[in-house]
């Protein structure tokens, strides 16, 4: 069932341990049919154990105490299904390569999730009063939908298109198939009634750049990995000494965190 693989994916690379995931994974949960719930109680672990067996026989351990856990890597807006589409799509837009990390490792999908949860997702500082009319392209976005809603619709449509074309969910497609879907959106080959497919693609692309390169305080650009790719030094106080210099200066980047005295 659809859910199980998603749960497994999340488990594979992020979540140290979570009983509920196993619970859900094994619960035979389904949507669309009449069976909407069901549980095998023995799969629930006692809350005090720090390890658990999933039914593949793997044991997942809690992260070692000396390894910093990034508690910020959880979802504020996306559902897990949406998150997995977002993560796969941004990784295709900005893939890991010889240059260094891609969107997934940089945490771009978390960045987008967190941004959508706030003012940006609600178009909080944009003029959203009616009346709403279709305008010329030169007049810019004239829809009534807020970014959150556009992402909700856009991601669902990506899933629908994947299912229709490849009979699989977007995140289960091969990278080449995922590119086919993204291109279909980029070129408006997908026809949508509510939002512009290419407009949605542009938004995803822009958000990917933001998530790769914004200060890590927002949850993307993990370990300043995006900055390192571009040799961008981050938050430096002064370039007076190098401004006239011919030689390219490679510096260890610094984030805004360093700008606050952490006692």
């Amino acid at each position: 069932m659809a859910n199980e693989t998603e749960e497994q994916d999340l488990k594979d690379h992020r979540e140290p341990d979570h009983s509920r995931r196993n619970f859900l994974k094994n619960s035979g949960y389904a949507v669309g049919g009449l069976i909407v719930g069901g549980v095998v109680g023995s799969l629930l672990r006692s809350p005090n154990k720090s390890t658990t067996n999933n039914n593949n026989g793997n044991t997942t351990e809690k992260a070692p105490a000396n390894e910093a856990v990034n508690f910020n890597q959880a979802l504020m807006h996306f559902t897990q299904e949406q998150f997995l589409i977002m993560e796969a799509a941004t990784e295709r837009i900005f893939p890991a390569d010889d240059n260094g990390p891609g969107a997934k490792e940089l945490g771009v999908a978390y960045f987008i999730d967190h941004q959508l949860a706030g003012e940006w997702g609600l178009n909080g500082r944009e003029y959203m009063q009616g009346p709403f009319f279709k305008g010329e392209t030169t007049q810019g976005y004239q829809g009534r939908l807020k970014r959150r809603e556009i992402f909700d619709i856009g991601l669902q449509e990506m899933q629908n298109y994947s299912n229709k074309k490849f009979q699989k969910k977007f995140k289960d497609l091969t990278p080449e198939q995922q590119d086919t879907v993204l291109k279909a959106f980029e070129t408006d080959e997908v026809k949508l009634t509510t939002i512009s497919a290419s407009g949605f693609f542009k938004t995803i692309f822009g958000s990917t750049m933001e998530g790769a390169y914004a200060d890590p305080l927002y949850g993307g650009n993990g370990n300043m990995g995006g900055w390192k790719l571009k040799n961008f030094p981050g938050n430096q106080m002064s370039y007076t000494k190098i401004i006239e210099q011919d030689k390219f200066e490679k510096m260890q980047p610094v984030s805004l965190r360093e700008h606050l005295p952490h006692s």
Binding site: N123, Y127, F133, T138, Q139, G140, Y141, Q142
Partner: peptide, 15 residues
Amino acid sequence: TFRGNEKIRALPMRS
């Protein structure tokens, strides 16, 4: 609000 010419409807710069 903006329009390219007087023949079309001006619409707000929303963002």
